[in-house]
Design a protein around this nucleic acid. Structure first.
Lengths: 237, 237
DNA sequence: ACCTGAACACCGTTCAAGT
DNA sequence: ACCTGAACACCGTTCAAGT
């Protein structure tokens, strides 16, 4: 243990940077959850005093911003790139992007409300993602003035779907069947009967995407198909 | 000011109840926002000590549960009721429900992540809403085993859309046009040109639903139309 | 400029004491 | 059973003092 404690006063070479803070914040929130993301815990991980963080970030919201920008860069743009290069269809590109987007953000549901309202100008990697998607959709023949609507509609659905992944499988279960729940119970039962009890494939835990709520996938596929179909109908002849 | 301070010890008749706490919590969060919903502020509003709340609620999350159940009862089920009575089409019922649902929750975006994962068994009014929707969709000819998928897909979209209402109108604006933002800027401009600068109708502030983000409506209408169209195609002959 | 450490004004929650 | 008031272990953030 050579944990040499740092003395007060400016260090010869800076210990912290926004990049380092963002990186460690993401690791912290991944390992221990958002509720453990405190300035104190983050500082401890970086082996500095909590107050030192404020030389690099404005406040905790600023830290959250660093996390989400790091997350966005994990979203796959491969399908959109192929669409730009005419190597994929509009449908394939939208599907690839949507599945990847949801999977990434489903890991951090509590970040979603902030992400949803953060201006892209404050998050450079997020800006780049939207730019690529805009380019691909334009190239595929979606009229300029509708591209944003398509992006926002998809995003709304993806954010909501990411939240749903975190819901318990029993979210629609009722304690006892009363008059107020008879219809709901009926359709929930029918749904579970079709889905089958163990996950459809042989994997031991969760689904292919690491989805926790076993029943989250069919509604996601249904909604996604609806949006893709409608988007295709916008393409100019 | 006859603000007679209460003495310690059990009062002859209880001062608090879960109903009263829920009611005041909703008023507090409506008037001053979720970040002002603290046990201390809530207690102040109810003129009790903060610790007194814990005789009626388990913790703060329990208070949030009371709020969301009160909110759900504001969602219009009129369209669904008419569908049950064969006085409305499936399309009309879904549209009415979706618009109302989004409007209600757009007022409280920060509650959405919790709402999205709360089991219905803990929120009786929420349970009743789902039951009515399930009854209406079943009656309209959606196969039992697909009803839940439809509900969850709609809900995902509605939660996400509610979040979007709270986003600033400038969310896609970039500070300066660089290589990384050229395509995005182009489609954003095209979108704004079509939307027109003042709100389409003559109202002085926001849209018909009290929506804050002026650009939130077209993507909402687009996504909703997509989901409704696809849902109609599920109806058995 | 960039760190430490003390301090401030809050949180949610627990619990003994009172009736 | 149901209230008060003191206490506890935390928060995020500020700021003087140090180099």
């Amino acid at each position: 243990m050579k944990s040499e404690k740092r003395t007060a006063g400016r260090p010869v070479t800076p210990v912290l940077s926004r990049e380092l803070i963002g990186e460690q914040a993401l690791e912290l929130v991944t390992a221990r959850g958002l509720e453990q993301l405190t300035m104190t815990n983050l500082a401890k991980r970086l082996k500095v005093a909590a107050s030192a963080l404020y030389n690099h970030v404005a406040n905790k919201a600023d830290v959250v911003l660093l996390i989400q920008d790091a997350l966005v860069s994990q979203v796959s743009l491969a399908g959109m790139q192929r669409l730009i290069d005419h190597q994929a269809t509009l449908e394939e590109a939208l599907y690839d992007w949507a599945v990847s987007y949801r999977a990434v953000f489903a890991e951090y549901p509590s970040l979603i409300p902030t992400i949803a309202v953060t201006p892209v100008s404050e998050a450079p990697k997020t800006l780049r993602m939207y730019n690529t998607v805009a380019q691909a959709l334009t190239g595929a023949g979606i009229p300029d003035e509708q591209v944003i609507d398509v992006i926002v509609a998809f995003e709304s659905f993806l954010f909501g779907s990411a939240l749903d992944v975190d819901a318990p499988s029993t979210i629609f279960d009722t304690d006892d069947v009363t008059e107020d729940s008879a219809w709901l119970d009926r359709v929930v039962k029918a749904s579970k009967a079709t889905a089958g009890d163990p996950p459809a494939n042989g994997s031991s835990e969760g689904t292919a995407d690491g989805v926790r709520n076993r029943y989250a996938d069919p509604p996601f596929q249904f909604g996604l198909a609806a949006l893709i179909q409608r988007t295709k109908s916008l393409v100019e002849a």
